[in-house]
Simulated assay, not measured.
Amino acid sequence: MTTLITHPLPALAVGLALGSRFIPPRLLLAGMLAACLPDLDVVAFKLGIAYHDAFGHRGFSHSLLFAACMGVLGALCCRLLGSGPLKAGLWVGLATASHSVLDAMTDGGLGVAWFWPWSDQRYFLPLHPIEVSPIGLSRFLSPRGLEVLISEARWVWLPCLGVAAAGIVLRRVLRRND
């Protein structure tokens, strides 16, 4: 799994790149929260649900169906999010799906059940350079946790910074040319 520090960054980067006129602040925040939501499935460990179970870690909450359901919820809450239903639904759904994409880029775990409930198979992307994060604060606050953060900085944080900066610069250039 990628850390909860990293999961909201793609939504934040794209939102900053597009600007607040296109992605209002409440919609941006909703996307960042939606990007973290799938990891609530770690509660399954406390309930005795096995990792490999459909309702275990990286199971149904990491599926495309779950992301689509979150998108529908975003569309239904569009007025609260300061946006139209299509934009809110797409934003929240894609932000939720970004979580499982990052997890599918890690070098450990069982993969992601993208096609649940139609298939229990777990998937990784062909490129999976991100160090998998240990589960639990005590394990994370260790040399292994530092390795994970360095890996995430290289493979997620820096590209997200580049996306945000490029979008901001491009918007300023386009504004000057108007």
Rank of each mutant, 00 (worst) to 15 (best):
D103L: 09
L86N: 00
L158S: 03
A165K: 04
F22W: 11
D39S: 05
D120G: 15
M105Y: 10
Y51G: 00
V156G: 02
G31R: 08
L47M: 09
P10Q: 11
A54H: 07
L33G: 04
G145A: 09
F45A: 00
G93M: 15
L65T: 10
L141I: 11
R154V: 06
V42F: 13
P129E: 11
D107P: 13
S151F: 06
V72A: 11
G93K: 15
H52S: 08
F55N: 01
L174T: 04
R122W: 07
S61L: 06
L161F: 12
H99Q: 01
A164K: 10
W118K: 03
H99M: 02
S142D: 13
A17L: 12
L29C: 04
G111Y: 11
L161P: 03
L73C: 06
P10W: 14
V112K: 10
D39A: 03
T2E: 04
D41K: 10
R154E: 04
A164C: 11
A95M: 11
A54L: 08
A97N: 07
H128K: 12
P85E: 14
G71Q: 09
V101F: 15
C36K: 14
G84N: 07
L33I: 12
S151A: 04
V173K: 15
L110D: 07
L12I: 13
P25S: 05
R175V: 05
L37T: 08
L73K: 01
A165T: 08
W155T: 00
